[in-house]
Design a protein around this nucleic acid. Structure first.
Lengths: 143, 143
DNA sequence: TACAATTAAATTGTATACAATGTAATTATA
DNA sequence: TATAATTACATTGTATACAATTTAATTGTA
């Protein structure tokens, strides 16, 4: 073991995470382009399909994003008619994001994307599960 | 299995990759801030510590980045005195990036970072190895 | 109840990230 | 050999991503 081996790119754990994430997101592009969606808009809609109604703070917890990133994304999704942005009457600090009818319909147009992406990823089912578990172990265990 | 379960955020493989990558990169920040480096600048230097001299195209292959991203990063690193940017006399299209003395010295200042990051990641050694292997399998096998 | 502290979003500034395009150098070929 | 095609890098435009700050609303407390 050389003195600086731990500084080699190929010996890092973060780098393949970073590269892998970016490269897979590129695979979404042709599918998302057809629907005029970005990856960030897409994962935002994923939360909305599930929750229907949520404030920015909560949304940010699910997505690991802050208002600095989310505000412009949500304004875009509002422009496209997929969500509504309304202040909470009980607490005007909260912005409630709610999915629209058009937003709900969008789900039908993206429902084949996960399968198509799976085909790009050259892993056995068991390996994919293993990877998934390890990633969440890291994500939930970060100190 | 509900009709739309494959569209739930928690059932994606890409999302934990994306989130994990970002969250770990945040852990680098306090260490890199002290040295006035960004993560992108840091991984660029990692290649340079290893290769000493490389053109932008090759560098981009290692880092999974294109000239659109690398050009400003390399100009910054040049400003800081860690690298030099020179055209190849044999083929003026090529920009040769070479590490400077100051760039080589920088390696001593970052050598504890990988260990510190490892401590943030709550994985056993065997799990980290497993994760590493799966990530490179995905990265090298993307279709 | 004034006012300090806290909270939620929005804003600002900096740095990626990448597709698309532009430019200059080199290579291939009619 | 003239020119078409290719290549390497830079530039442009759009969209994140995030730290730091600001703003407005709410809560806690002296």
């Amino acid at each position: 073991m050389e003195e600086y081996d731990n500084l080699k790119l190929e010996n890092q754990l973060c780098f393949p995470l970073y590269a892998c994430s970016k490269e897979i997101i590129k695979k979404y592009k042709p599918y998302l382009d057809k629907l005029d969606l970005t990856y960030t808009q897409y994962i935002t809609m994923m939360v909305l399909w599930d929750k229907k109604k949520i404030n920015v703070k909560e949304l940010g917890k699910y997505l690991f994003l802050d208002s600095g990133t989310l505000t412009p994304v949500l304004k875009k999704l509002e422009q496209k008619g997929y969500i509504e942005r309304n202040r909470n009457k009980e607490d005007e600090r909260n912005l409630i994001i709610s999915i629209t009818k058009l937003g709900i319909e969008l789900r039908n147009k993206v429902k084949d994307i996960p399968n198509n992406i799976s085909k790009c990823v050259n892993l056995e089912q068991t390996e994919a599960v293993q990877l998934y578990k390890l990633l969440y172990k890291v994500l939930n265990g970060l100190k």
